[in-house]
Design a binder for these strands. Structure first.
Length: 926
RNA sequence: GCGGGCGUGGCGGAAUGGUAGACGCAAAGGACUUAAAAUCCUUCGGAUGGAAACGUCCGUGCCGGUUCGAGUCCGGCCGCCCGCACCA
C-alpha cells in the first residue's frame, strides 16, 4: 500500500475545533463533581489578570496544565481544573483615568473577551467554578476572613513608611518609583509614615522556613529563594551601657544585634540608624547632627542612590561601654548604612571582619584590629587594609578568646554575656520601649483581647525574656532574627477589596459586623481628581458606628491584590458556598493542589503569601492543613526576536518579512520594504512590540498547532523562542497525523485480536507500546518536549510500517496498525485534543477520546529477545555484540572476545578485566 | 558583593556515570508537477583514509582530578543568565 494523500482532504482545524468545543461543552464532560468517588487530582494554573487579551505565555501555561488534566482524567482520576480572574488592581484604575471607563465595566469586558479566547484553546476547564476576585460574591468571604484573622491576632494596625506620591495623592509600590519619582506623575516621592493594616506573616517566619523542607515537589530554586527571603540569622542581642557624661538625658543604654559576638574585641565604633531614637535624641541638642539625619533621609528615597551611596557617619559624641571591659568605651555614630527596620537599628562595628565597617573606619580614621587570623597566616604580621576578612580562623587579640575557633568564641561570649546582669532600666526609659511607644503607632482593637502589644522590636524567640526581666536583666540574649517583615496590605486605592473596618471617634477601630458583610465598593465614583475616590465619596464613607451608633467613617483603604490570590485555590473547591469562604470538607478533600503551574516571577511573594494565608485559614477553621501547593512547576517565558526601524520604532513581527539565511538574514517592513534592524531575543512585551497574538495564530493554524508548538522544542521550565518556522513545523505535523490516521482508518482489520503476530506486526506493536510507555512517563514528569519527540518517533515508525505494507495487509498486521493508530490518537490527545477527537471519530469510534481511558502498556512488548551491546576497549567503542536477552556474563564475554576488533586491540594478550553491565555495555580493559 | 543556575552541531535541544548529538527546525540534493505549493526520498559535528562496504582520529566553554568508562561526579578558571542586595 502506498500513501495516497490525494484522497484525504486537509484537516480544517478551525471548523473542527469549534465543533468539538461545542460538543464538549454540551456534554459537560469537564465539569467536576465534589462527590465524585474516584481519586481526586487538583491541577491548577496561576489565574490571569484580565488585561483584555491572552498572550503566548498564557497559551503555554494553560496548555501545560491542560495536558496534565487530560492525562490524569484518562488515568481514572476525578480532576479539578478550574479557572478564574485575578480581577482587582491598578490597570483598571489607570483605564478609568486615561479612558474614562469605569473599572468595573472595563474589568468585566476584559474577562468576557479573555474567556472567549481561552475557550478557543480547547482547555478542559470546569467553567462552572469560575470566580472573579472583584465580585462581591468572592470578596465578601475575604472580608470575613480578614475579621477572623483579626480576632485570631493575625492582623494588626501600625505605622509604617511608604512611598508617597504627593501629586497623585497615593502610595506607590517600590517598582512604581523610578529614580525617586512617581512613575505616572513624575513627582518627587516622599517617605511618609502612615498607619496601615498588616498581616502578621512574621509570626510564621520559623514555620514557613522549616516547612520548605517538606515541599519536595517544588523546584529547589524556588525553595532557596523563599529561604533567602525569610532570611534567618542566629545571633546575640547585646546591651551596651552608655557613658552617662556623654548622653542626652533619659538615655542609658544601646541595644544592638550581632551575628558575630566573637569579634567583640575587634570593635571600633557603634552605629545607629538615622531614624533610631538615640539619634533623634542626640539630634535634639545638636543641629548639625539633625541636618545630617535629614540628608540621609533625602538620599534614602531612590534605589539607585542607596546602591551608590558612600558610607557616611556623624559622631554623636556619645560613648558606649564595652560589655566585656568597663574601661573601654566606643564612639557612637549615626550612619547612613544602618537600617532601622532590621534588628534593633544599631550595631557595633568590627572593621577587620566586615567590609562595610571597614569602609567606614577607613573614611573616618578609626583603625582596625584583626581578631580572626586565617589559617596559614602569622598572627604577628596579619593586618587588614581595605579588604575585610570574613573567613574561618583562630581568635587573636581577644584576651580570653585567643586560640579559639570562631564557633567556640561565639559560644563563650554568648555564655558570659547572657549570665552577666545589669540593673534593669527605669520604666519607660529603655530606648527599645521608647521607640515602640513613639513609633509603633499600634492601636488597640475593640473586641480583640488577643493582641497584646509586643514589647520587643523582634518577632523572633527570646526577645520576650530580655524585655520582660523585672529585676536584673542579662547583658545579652540569644536571638533568632528573620528578615521577613509583616505583610502590609493597605492600599489607598478604589479597585480592591474594601477593608471591613469602621473608625469611630468614641470607640476607635471597630470591625464591621459579619452580618453587614459584604462591604461593597460603591459604583458612583469618579477619577477626576487624584487620590482615592473612596476617600472623597460623599456618602459611602460615612456610616454609623456598629458599637455606639454615633457618626463614624469607613476605612477607605482596600486590600493588596496579593490577598485576593492567596486563597482562590481554596475557593475553587466550593465556589457555590454563599455563607463561608470554604466548605472545609471539600477544601480538605481537594487540597493541597497536586500540581500548580505558573511563572517564576511569583516564586516569592504570591507563593509565600499563599502559604501564610493557608496557615491562617487553618487557624481560623476554614481548612485543616498548612501547605496549599504540594507540587509546583515554574514554566519558562515565551520569547521572540525584536525588530526596530531606522527611526528607532519597535515593529511588530506581524508586519515584518524575513529574507535570507544566516549571514544574509534580513528583516524588512512588509508594507514598504524598509530595511529593519534585527534585535535580540526577548520576553514578548508590548513595549518592544515583539508579540504574537494567540488569536491570529489560532485563526491561521488552529489551537492544536499553537498548543503543540508551545510544548515542543524547549524544556518547559526554560524559555521557548517563538518562530514562524516552528509554528509551521507544528502545523505540518498536525496535517501529517491527520493523513496517517486516514490511512490507518482505511485499513480493514479484524475485530478480534489475532492469536499470533508476524514479525512485521510485532515491530509496529513494539513501537506503539514503547511510545506509550515513554509518553506516559514523560507527561507524569512534565517533560512535555520529550513527549513531543516520542510522538514524532512513533509517527515516523508508523509511516514506515505503512509504507512497507502490502496493498492488502495480513489480518494480524492490519490489527496491529489499528491498535497503533488508536494508541497514537490517545497519546497526543492531551496536547492536541481537537485533532484527536477528529481522528478518533474518523477511526470509527463513537465515543469521545476526551473521556477515553489511557491505553494499557503490554510490558512484554517493551523487552526485546535479543540485545545489542556496544563493546568498548579501554572506554572507546570498537563494535557491538548481539546476544540473547538472558545471556549470562560468561556467554557475553566469550562473544565479545571473539570480535575482530577486540582481538586486534588485544594483540594476543589476555584482557586485564572485562566489565559487563547487563543490558547496557561491555568494556574490555586491555 | 552574596546566593543559585547554565555552557553540547548552523539553530532549539536528547542522553538513570555506559554507543554523544534522539526528535524537531534550518540547509543541500533528488522525485512528483507545465510550474508552484504540498508531499515523499537522501545527506547533514569536524578532520581524514577508501572505488565502495566500511574505517581511523578529534569533538559536549577552558585546565586538572576521580573512574574500567565523564556531557554527566569533584576542584580551579572563563563566559552568560537569574534572584537578593548596606540584613549587622
Amino acid at each position: 500500500m502506498t500513501a495516497d494523500s490525494s484522497k484525504t482532504e486537509r484537516y480544517a482545524a478551525r471548523a473542527a475545533e469549534t465543533r468539538w468545543q461545542k460538543l464538549w461543552d454540551e456534554q459537560g464532560i469537564y465539569a467536576t463533581k465534589n462527590d465524585d468517588p474516584r481519586p481526586k487530582y487538583y491541577v491548577l494554573e496561576m489565574f490571569p489578570y484580565p488585561s483584555g487579551r491572552i498572550h503566548m505565555g498564557h497559551v503555554r501555561n494553560y496548555t501545560m496544565g491542560d495536558v496534565v488534566a487530560r492525562f490524569k482524567r484518562a488515568m481514572g482520576h476525578a480532576v479539578l481544573h478550574p479557572m478564574g480572574w485575578d480581577a482587582f488592581g491598578m490597570p483598571a484604575e489607570n483605564a478609568a483615568i486615561d479612558r474614562k471607563v469605569h473599572p468595573k465595566e472595563w474589568t468585566y469586558a476584559n474577562i468576557a473577551a479573555m474567556k472567549k479566547q481561552l475557550q478557543s484553546m480547547g482547555l478542559s476547564l470546569d467553567w462552572a467554578r469560575e470566580v472573579a476576585t472583584c465580585d462581591p460574591s468572592y470578596y465578601r468571604h475575604q472580608q470575613k476572613m480578614f475579621l477572623d484573622f483579626l480576632k485570631a491576632g493575625l492582623v494588626e494596625r501600625k505605622q509604617s513608611k511608604v512611598n508617597w506620591d504627593p501629586v497623585d495623592n497615593t502610595v506607590l509600590a517600590n517598582e512604581q518609583v523610578i529614580d525617586g519619582r512617581g512613575w505616572r506623575s513624575g513627582a518627587l516621592v516622599e517617605q511618609r509614615e502612615l498607619i496601615q493594616w498588616f498581616f502578621k506573616i512574621s509570626d510564621y517566619s520559623k514555620e514557613l522556613l522549616k516547612a520548605l523542607d517538606g515541599l519536595d515537589r517544588w523546584p529547589d530554586k524556588v525553595r532557596l529563594m523563599q529561604k533567602n527571603w525569610i532570611g534567618k540569622s542566629e545571633g546575640l542581642l547585646v546591651r551596651f551601657m552608655l557613658d552617662a557624661a556623654t548622653v542626652p538625658s533619659g538615655e542609658t543604654e544601646l541595644e544592638i544585634f550581632t551575628t558575630r559576638p566573637d569579634t567583640l574585641f575587634g570593635a571600633k565604633f557603634m552605629a545607629v540608624a538615622p531614624d533610631h531614637p538615640l539619634a533623634t535624641a542626640a539630634a535634639a541638642r545638636n543641629p548639625k547632627l539633625a541636618e545630617f539625619i535629614e540628608e540621609c533621609k533625602r538620599i534614602g528615597t531612590s534605589q539607585e542612590a542607596i546602591d551608590t551611596a558612600e558610607k557616611m557617619g556623624f559622631d554623636t559624641g556619645i560613648r558606649a561601654v564595652h560589655p566585656l571591659d568597663p574601661n573601654w568605651t566606643l564612639p557612637v555614630y549615626v550612619a547612613n548604612f544602618i537600617l532601622m527596620e532590621y534588628g534593633t537599628g544599631a550595631i557595633f562595628g568590627c572593621p577587620a571582619h566586615d567590609q562595610r565597617d571597614l569602609d567606614f573606619v577607613n573614611k573616618y580614621g578609626l583603625g582596625n584590629t584583626p581578631v580572626v587570623c586565617p589559617p596559614n597566616q602569622d598572627p604577628a604580621t596579619f593586618v587588614i587594609t581595605d579588604t575585610a576578612y570574613d573567613g574561618d580562623g583562630k581568635m587573636i587579640n581577644s584576651r580570653f578568646l585567643d586560640g579559639m575557633s570562631i564557633d567556640q568564641a561565639k559560644e563563650e561570649v554568648s555564655k558570659r554575656l547572657e549570665t552577666t546582669f545589669l540593673p534593669p532600666l527605669e520604666k519607660g526609659r529603655s530606648p527599645v520601649e521608647a521607640r515602640h511607644a513613639s513609633e509603633d503607632g499600634r492601636v488597640g482593637i475593640i473586641g480583640d483581647d488577643r493582641s497584646p502589644p509586643r514589647p520587643s522590636p523582634f518577632q523572633g524567640e527570646g526577645a520576650q525574656a530580655l524585655a520582660q526581666s523585672s529585676n536584673n536583666a542579662p547583658v545579652a540574649q540569644r536571638q533568632v532574627n528573620y528578615r521577613l517583615r509583616d505583610w502590609g496590605i493597605s492600599r489607598q486605592r478604589y479597585w480592591g477589596c474594601p477593608i471591613p473596618i469602621i473608625h469611630c471617634d468614641k470607640c476607635g477601630v471597630v470591625p464591621v459586623p459579619a452580618s453587614d458583610l459584604p462591604v461593597v465598593l460603591p459604583d458612583d465614583i469618579n477619577f477626576d481628581k487624584p487620590g482615592n475616590p473612596l476617600d472623597r465619596h460623599p456618602t459611602w464613607k460615612n456610616v454609623k458606628c456598629p458599637q455606639c451608633s454615633g457618626a463614624a467613617r469607613r476605612e477607605t483603604d482596600t486590600m493588596d491584590t496579593f490577598v485576593d490570590s492567596s486563597w482562590y485555590f481554596a475557593r475553587f473547591t466550593d465556589p457555590w458556598n454563599e455563607t463561608s469562604p470554604t466548605t472545609p470538607k471539600a477544601a480538605n478533600e481537594w487540597l493541597p493542589v497536586d500540581q500548580y503551574i505558573g511563572g517564576i516571577e511569583h516564586a516569592i511573594l504570591h507563593l509565600l503569601y499563599s502559604r501564610f494565608f493557608t496557615r491562617a485559614m487553618h487557624r481560623t477553621g476554614h481548612l485543616n492543613f498548612d501547605e496549599p501547593f504540594a507540587g509546583l512547576f515554574t514554566q519558562g517565558m515565551v520569547v521572540h526576536e525584536t525588530y526596530k526601524s531606522k527611526s528607532g520604532d519597535w515593529i511588530e513581527p506581524a508586519n515584518v518579512t524575513i529574507e535570507g539565511m544566516g549571514e544574509t538574514r534580513r528583516a524588512k517592513l512588509t508594507s514598504t520594504g524598509e530595511a529593519l534592524d534585527i534585535g535580540s531575543i526577548e520576553k514578548m512585551s508590548k513595549s518592544k512590540k515583539n508579540v504574537v497574538d494567540p488569536d491570529d495564530i489560532i485563526e491561521a493554524y488552529g489551537a492544536d498547532t499553537a498548543r503543540w508548538f508551545m510544548l515542543s522544542d524547549s524544556p518547559p521550565e526554560r524559555d521557548v523562542i517563538w518562530t514562524e518556522e516552528g509554528v509551521q513545523g507544528a502545523w505540518r505535523f498536525v496535517q501529517r497525523l491527520w493523513r496517517l490516521n486516514g490511512e490507518i482508518a482505511r485499513i480493514a482489520a479484524p475485530a478480534t485480536r489475532p492469536a499470533e503476530f508476524s514479525e512485521q506486526a510485532l515491530v509496529v506493536r513494539k513501537a506503539a507500546h514503547r511510545a506509550l510507555n515513554n509518553v506516559s512517563d514523560d507527561i507524569a514528569r512534565l517533560r512535555f518536549n520529550r513527549c513531543v519527540a516520542h510522538i514524532y518517533e512513533f509517527a515516523n515508525a508508523l509511516s514506515d510500517a505503512i509504507g512497507s505494507a502490502e496493498t492488502a495487509p495480513s489480518p494480524d498486521f492490519a490489527w496491529a496498525l489499528r491498535e497503533a493508530g488508536d494508541i497514537l490518537v490517545r497519546l497526543f490527545h492531551p496536547m492536541m485534543p481537537h485533532l484527536a477527537e477528529e481522528c478518533w471519530a474518523a477511526m470509527g469510534h463513537k465515543t469521545l477520546v476526551a473521556t477515553e481511558a489511557w491505553p494499557q502498556v503490554e510490558a512484554d512488548l517493551l523487552v526485546e529477545n535479543t540485545v545489542t551491546l556496544p563493546v568498548q576497549v579501554n572506554g572507546k567503542k570498537r563494535g557491538d555484540v548481539t546476544v540473547a536477552r538472558e545471556a549470562g556474563e560468561a556467554e557475553i564475554k566469550a562473544a565479545v572476545l571473539a570480535l575482530d576488533a577486540v582481538i586486534k586491540a588485544l594483540d594476543g594478550k589476555s584482557p586485564k578485566k572485562v566489565i559487563v553491565v547487563p543490558q547496557r555495555i561491555v568494556n574490555v580493559v586491555a
